[in-house]
């Protein structure tokens, strides 16, 4: 028996049971859902396996997917695959659906979840840029009740999120694409499948009478957390998506990002690619992509 097998498990069936179990737990207690990040760490020995695992993949409230009052409610335990094939997600949040369809490969998409992708707190998490660009909020639950945390403040710093040890992500509230809205998602990695992103980017624009009324641009792997790029958004606002606007936005993205050199890429490459992804997304959204 490997050491990772020695953990004891709880099998809660409701959100209330998870709250009680987490409150009674300690720093050797961990939630498990899809396991695509945690099981790798525990079995490789990078992280010691926890004493107690709370298995949450059978809790129905964590698998909700519905539209209400201009946003989608997306349960934390929904798999990438569930999001990628959902007509509701594809039509209301096309960038999120595209990101979910690009995570890992189909085997990982069937296991990994949106809640895990966000809670793992990696600056390279593929689902985070589309959530940021859509203005999503995290709904967390814990012994002190439920909290609504805007995605931007939820990402506190490198590998750090605004979630206490006794709290967990219940679901996400994601504003749907408004009338006249369009979205794009692109990522760059060593290969299309399986590779962790060197840069990932999402964009939402609302175009009215040929001009951008609202713009949101977000990027992963170019700073300690995934970030919005207000410098780029300001340039787009009120202007037509023509070649001079796109060129300015491209340069602004390169100036705005703060990437680092690491095992997957270099800061210089990431800076250049950040601009090129903005250019690609905007050309796509303006209908001028080659």
């Amino acid at each position: 028996m490997s050491s990772a097998e020695s953990s004891r498990c709880f099998f809660p069936e409701s959100v209330e049971e998870i709250i009680t179990l987490l409150a009674e737990g300690n720093n050797r207690t961990c939630l498990l859902c899809g396991g695509t990040d945690l099981l790798v760490q525990w079995h490789s020995g990078v992280t010691a396996p926890p004493e107690t695992v709370i298995v949450i993949n059978a809790v129905p409230e964590l698998k909700v997917l519905r539209e209400e009052e201009g946003h989608l409610v997306i349960g934390a335990a929904l798999s990438h695959r569930a999001l990628a094939v959902s007509e509701l997600v594809r039509s209301r949040l096309p960038a999120l659906a595209a990101a979910a369809a690009d995570v890992g490969a189909v085997q990982i998409q069937n296991s990994g979840t949106i809640g895990g992708n966000v809670a793992n707190a990696s600056p390279a998490a593929d689902l985070v840029p589309p959530l940021l660009a859509a203005g999503a909020a995290v709904i967390a639950a814990g012994p002190r009740g439920r909290r609504r945390i805007p995605m931007e403040s939820f990402l506190r710093g490198y590998r750090s999120i605004d979630l206490a040890d006794d709290e967990f992500i219940l679901h996400f509230e994601v504003p749907v694409l408004p009338a006249g809205g369009r979205e794009s998602f692109h990522k760059l990695g060593s290969r299309a499948a399986q590779a962790i992103s060197k840069v990932a980017a999402a964009c939402r624009v609302v175009v009215e009478d040929g001009r951008v009324r609202e713009a949101a641009v977000a990027m992963g792997s170019v700073a300690p957390t995934a970030i919005r790029l207000p410098e780029v958004e300001k340039i787009l606002s009120g202007r037509p998506l023509d070649s001079s606007t796109i060129q300015e936005a491209t340069e602004a993205a390169r100036a705005a990002v703060r990437p680092i050199d690491d095992i997957r890429s270099t800061a210089e490459y990431r800076r250049w690619a950040a601009g090129s992804l903005v250019e690609l997304m905007l050309e796509e959204l303006s209908g001028t992509a080659p």
Partner: peptide, 25 residues
């Protein structure tokens, strides 16, 4: 660690990697 797919099996018709799936799930 879920990269190579050599342990792919179908769980209720969906391909998953058996190395990143535990009995509890």
């Amino acid at each position: 660690e879920g990269e190579c797919g050599a342990c792919t099996v179908l769980i209720n018709g969906e391909p998953r990697v058996a190395c990143l799936t535990v009995a509890a799930q």
